[in-house]
């Protein structure tokens, strides 16, 4: 396939009257992990949410495989193949793990058994807990459920909003490993991360957003090596 899977093309967007994103450009190509980093309040999560149709896009366009989906309502965005894992409250706490996965497949209910099997293969920890309420799991396990739930549809691209926030280093490593596994299974990923170092280490390309605008763009390694970025986010010294 040629051209990007997902393209955020020069969007200006916000909630109600307030504009939060000023001319944001991000694209995700097939078979890559793209990381979006930046300080708190830079508009990273907002950028992801604009794809979902959760906020008002005033100008610019969102395209999926070249097809414009700007301001499409969330349930239709999901039907078109964009899966999203919110940062918090990303599982149905009162539903069992398996029921969460079944809900993830709402837009594509056929072949449920095989896809559940695929998910338990990708997230082996979840198999034993399939009948437990998702709310009873640890933070890391919930994140796994949330990601598995998002992958239950044939996602063309997976959007992750700070998947490692608040997790222990052990789980953080596991989540990034899973993200690489997901990419290897053929699903490109757009990830927003606070944890810039690990995110850029995993990503093929990265974007740095500051104050709702693009600041830097490059491969993961380039951005990691950039002194400016190191000083801003990576805790590096001059």
């Amino acid at each position: 396939m040629s051209g990007p899977i997902l393209e955020i093309d020069g969007i200006h967007a916000g909630y109600g009257e307030t504009e939060i994103l000023h001319d944001i450009n991000i694209h995700v190509d097939p078979n890559e992990i793209v990381a979006v980093i930046g300080p708190n309040g830079a508009g990273k999560s907002t950028a992801i949410k604009s794809v979902l149709g959760l906020l008002n896009i005033r100008s610019g366009a969102i395209r999926l495989n070249g097809e414009e989906i700007t301001n499409t309502p969330p349930d239709q965005v999901v039907t078109r193949g964009i899966s999203y894992v919110p940062q918090t409250q990303n599982v149905f706490v009162n539903l069992s793990v398996q029921e969460n996965l079944e809900m993830g497949a709402w837009t594509r209910p056929d072949g449920m058994a095989e896809r559940l099997e695929e998910m338990y293969a990708l997230f082996p920890d979840l198999r034993a807990k399939s009948r437990q309420a998702a709310g009873s799991l640890s933070g890391g396990q919930r994140q796994m459920v949330a990601m598995a739930k998002a992958l239950m549809v044939d996602a063309k691209v997976l959007l992750l909003d700070e998947p490692t926030a608040g997790l222990s280093p052990k789980y953080r490593g596991e989540i990034f490993q899973t993200i690489r596994n997901i990419k290897n299974s053929g699903v490109p990923i757009l990830i927003v991360e606070q944890n810039a170092k690990q995110a850029l280490g995993t990503a093929d390309r990265g974007y740095v957003l500051v104050d709702g605008a693009n600041r830097h763009t490059g491969t993961g390694e380039e951005l990691l090596a950039d002194r400016d970025i190191a000083r801003m986010f990576l805790g590096g010294r001059e």
Partner: peptide
């Protein structure tokens, strides 16, 4: 039950 649990999550799940 899912919508009762979280309508926002239900929406972005495609329900």
């Amino acid at each position: 039950r899912a919508v009762s649990d979280s309508p926002d999550l239900a929406r972005v799940t495609g329900i």
